[in-house]
Design a protein around this nucleic acid. Structure first.
Lengths: 348, 348
DNA sequence: GTGAAAGCGCTAACAC
DNA sequence: GTGTTAGCGCTTTCAC
């Protein structure tokens, strides 16, 4: 415990607690005799003084705590974000409290309110849905909040994400150049910005290539392997007809490949597949997944930085939308269309 | 923010703050007129009162915050533990602060001290090394602390882990029954309890089978894929001579398989490999990794429960060592020895 | 440049 | 059963 108090330090240094406080506070140190500063610092060191952050927070109404809300920490998308955020936060003297909502909006609401009771200085939200009451509430309360990975429809909160339009376009172009003329988009759920944005980007990309009709979009219920497999199964039972598939994320892609395999189709021989996010392990799958690399660590870092900027200077306007550059990663789940057996089997 | 204070509620209910405090506190509610309780609760609800946890903590010297220290949240071993712990903690009204030490003992030390300054009620440590100054310091400070996944050599802190001796024995027996007579143990680092324990279990298992000389142990520098690959490469260049390999964890196993492949050897045809922990994705590798399943969520949950028990009743003795049952998961990286091409090529 | 005094929002003795 | 008082450990006016 923080056994030794500031008053102990002050006594040992022969000064008043107020002076000790100033001496130890970088902001106020200027107005203190440099010799006094030295004495106080020495006393603090000898006593092993550790300031009581709670007391400070109570007085300053700043807790130096930031809450990070994730839907599911076991989803490999989030740990790098958490890590990035934690790195900049702890470096700045802030502490990160993590809360996992288990993908449940009600848990999200109650956890956020618990964090507010703790007096956290701000929120990093990685759970935003397209229409999100929790986000709206945070906006109302005007507590510093930044959105990461996903954003909502209406709020003008700072947002740090990836350049998904570009990422999806790279996938579509790659497949088109490989000769694929019938491309399926396995879309993410409509209640997430990432799902919506990637779908819209898919359509734009085809339009830009002059082939607006070369694509079909199928929505998945969630960004999960199961959802991807289910949608793909259904499609395949309905006859198929595509030689390439752009999945809205890696998990959907994995589910799709699984379903393909169960239908006796192979990837990439029969169907080319692209994922999205480059989760840490997808390059080790067999075949390694072609996907879009997203700087997740950096997303975490930048969201933390944006939040700190807001906390430090609340007067400033805070509504920057940051889209990080992505990288297309060609691996082994995409192949030229003319090598496809699929055309012979299902189409033509 | 927690704009409305208890005094506001008290005023509205026409009572003193102390009474309002009692009315809202389940422990002290008994000594309050039930009608008063009702009035206070109603006022609190109408005003949207949210108690200020900092102020309460300052007064009670209880923060209802627990710190969880992990070496690297992007290692798939830890998210399930975090999730499990967070679940029981938040259910009990506690908040989890997460800190990622980036596998650096110095960061660990400084982060722990920062958390203590915050007045956290206890620690869950997932970073313990066999000799660990940070753990020793925590013991000295007598702040409630439980170890999860790894423990240290000396402290008698509560520990929640898996039954590694059993898990490793299952691997060895499985391989022995498949006819393997020359088994390698890719050991984890000696400065972790898991590394040491699994190595010792490997030796015991062979002894119990009456084949104490059928095994060799090679230490890896870290529990990483790279370390596993490096050790395996070295071995293979030295001549090899084993048909099976028990890795101390999944990452080492993956590295080993990679090295094997680079040497033109295939798994399981030439060498059978077992992993440990059943990280979420290893069943989707090709071939799916034979490994030992460990209830990681439950480890997180039980460690949080053990910690809460200690926090709630500090007088009690707190030194329980909990070893959770494991499950051997036979998948595709293990095969009978007599089908091995390796005997023909490198041995014999 | 330093001390005195007040108070952040809450709870726990102690009165009554 | 409820009000009074004091104080958790710190920072911040305001004097001097």
């Amino acid at each position: 415990m923080a056994r030794v108090r500031l008053s102990d330090v002050a006594e040992k240094a022969g000064v008043h607690t107020a002076t000790a406080s100033r001496a130890l506070n970088p902001e106020a140190r200027d107005g203190v005799n440099s010799d006094t500063v030295r004495r106080v610092e020495q006393a603090a060191r000898q006593l092993g003084y550790v300031p009581n952050t709670l007391a400070r927070g109570l007085r300053t109404s700043r807790s130096y705590v930031v809450a990070l809300v994730v839907p599911d920490i076991t989803n490999a998308l989030f740990p790098p974000i958490v890590r990035g955020a934690e790195r900049v936060l702890s470096r700045a003297g802030y502490t990160l409290v993590l809360t996992d909502t288990n993908n449940d909006p009600r848990t999200e609401l109650s956890q956020i309110s618990a964090m507010r009771a703790r007096g956290v200085d701000g929120f990093i939200i990685a759970t935003a849905r397209w229409s999100d009451p929790a986000v709206a509430e945070l906006v109302d309360s005007s507590i510093p909040t930044v959105l990461v990975n996903r954003r909502d429809a209406v709020s003008k909160l700072p947002y740090v994400g990836a350049d998904d339009r570009h990422g999806i376009r790279l996938c579509v172009e790659h497949l088109a150049h490989l000769g694929h003329r019938s491309i399926l988009h396995l879309a993410g759920p409509n209640n997430t910005s990432t799902g919506r944005e990637r779908t819209s980007a898919f359509r734009s990309a085809l339009r830009a290539l002059g082939r607006p009709t070369a694509g079909t979009v199928v929505s998945c219920a969630a960004f999960t392997e199961d959802a991807g497999a289910a949608a793909t199964h259904e499609l395949l039972e309905g006859g198929g007809g595509f030689t390439a598939l752009v999945a809205a994320n890696d998990l959907l892609a994995m589910g799709a490949i699984e379903a393909l395999t169960e239908h006796g189709l192979s990837c990439p021989t029969d169907v080319s597949v692209t994922g999205y996010n480059d989760l840490s392990f997808v390059r080790r799958l067999t075949p390694p997944l072609t996907t879009v690399g997203v700087p997740l660590d950096e997303m975490g870092e930048l969201s933390a930085e944006a939040l700190l900027a807001w906390i430090v200077d609340p007067a400033q306007g805070h509504d920057a939308q940051t889209l990080l550059p992505v990288a297309f990663l060609e691996r082994a789940t995409t192949a030229p269309a003319d090598r496809s057996r699929r055309d012979r089997r299902l189409i033509g």
